[in-house]
């Protein structure tokens, strides 16, 4: 039997639900050198801001049990350079719709990025990151209150006709309230979760491992938290949810979808296994067969 892996996000049909998460796949170039990335459902490209950013000082990476902390700090060439250089290059190696991940330090910046990326034909979805823990005075600050999350959502919705997904932070007391505020403000979907704020200390040197002291914790260790939050949010809103956080296998994709995700992003796993997304996509039909799943859409949110 042919298994149906396709899913639909706000009218955007994906051949399968697997999307590399922003910041773990660049703009596709490095990965396209080792496999044909057209097998992916889509790509959420590297978080883009209005202005070019170098990001945080190094060390930016800390090893953790079943995960890592990163403090990259939204290093990117800026939205104009992304449109001028990265997207034309991506178009040559990836022919499917893409998810444009954008971030900002003010509502005006979010708006400007969305306005510019709205004109890009290959961009199917705008994924608005209001949850980066690695930048001060912005990023996550917008994602930690329902009011500011709604304000960003409303502002970007006014300047684009493309579906807007808001990427939420898990570092909040009530993720459901924030997701609902985004939905009410017009969001077309929710991506969750971004990284958990974490910290490691080098006990021999008595110094934080990360130069910026704290960073975003991701990897297999946060998967149960992500499943829980996807479950909570997906059952509280009517808009689609992209599940993200610690997904490392085809079984994890199924679990995330049963929790309520329509599509699934794979993040940290790409850093330790560059073939992670490819292997997950190839494994999915076998796991579906084993579990008696004909169509992936049949399992979305089956957990009551």
């Amino acid at each position: 039997m042919v298994r149906d892996l396709s899913v639909e996000l706000c009218g955007v049909v994906l051949d399968n639900p697997v999307i590399p998460a922003s910041g773990t796949f660049g703009f596709g170039k490095e990965m396209s050198e080792i496999y044909d990335i057209n097998i992916l459902g889509s790509i959420s490209f590297k978080g883009t801001t209005r202005d070019a950013r170098f990001g945080n000082p190094t060390p930016r990476i800390a090893e953790c049990p079943s995960g890592l902390i990163n403090s990259v700090g939204l290093q990117n060439p800026g939205v104009d350079a992304v449109i001028a250089n990265e997207l034309p290059a991506l178009r040559k190696i990836f022919r499917k719709p893409i998810v444009a991940n954008i971030s900002g330090f003010s509502i005006e910046e979010y708006v400007e990025c969305c306005q510019k990326l709205d004109k890009e034909e290959q961009v199917a979805i705008l994924e608005v990151n209001i949850s980066c823990p690695n930048v001060h005075n912005g990023g996550m600050a917008f994602g930690t209150s329902p009011e500011s999350a709604a304000a960003v959502t409303k502002a970007v919705k006014a300047v684009t006709t493309k579906p807007v997904f808001i990427k939420l932070s898990p570092n909040v007391t009530d993720i459901v309230a924030i997701a609902k505020a985004c939905e009410e403000a017009g969001a077309d979907g929710i991506t969750l979760i971004n990284t958990m704020l974490g910290m490691r200390i080098d006990i021999a040197r008595r110094k934080p491992v990360i130069a910026n002291k704290m960073g975003g914790f991701s990897g297999a260790a946060i998967f149960p938290i992500a499943v829980r939050m996807v479950y909570q949010v997906a059952h509280a809103v009517k808009i689609p949810v992209i599940g993200c956080g610690g997904v490392s296998s085809a079984e994890d994709v199924i679990e995330m979808m049963m929790a309520g995700a329509t599509a699934v992003q794979v993040g940290a796993e790409n850093l330790r296994n560059p073939y992670a997304c490819k292997e997950i996509i190839e494994e999915l039909p076998f796991v579906m067969e084993r579990l008696g799943i004909e169509k992936l859409t049949d399992i979305i949110g089956v957990i009551e």
Partner: peptide, 27 residues
């Protein structure tokens, strides 16, 4: 040398500033 995440250029964990702009130590 720099502490790396992926080692193949996708995570930007090992970036440094050079006279020719930001570069990844791994790539």
């Amino acid at each position: 040398e720099e502490r790396m995440g992926c080692g193949f250029g996708i995570c930007m964990g090992c970036s440094i500033q050079t006279t020719k702009g930001a570069k990844r130590v791994c790539k």
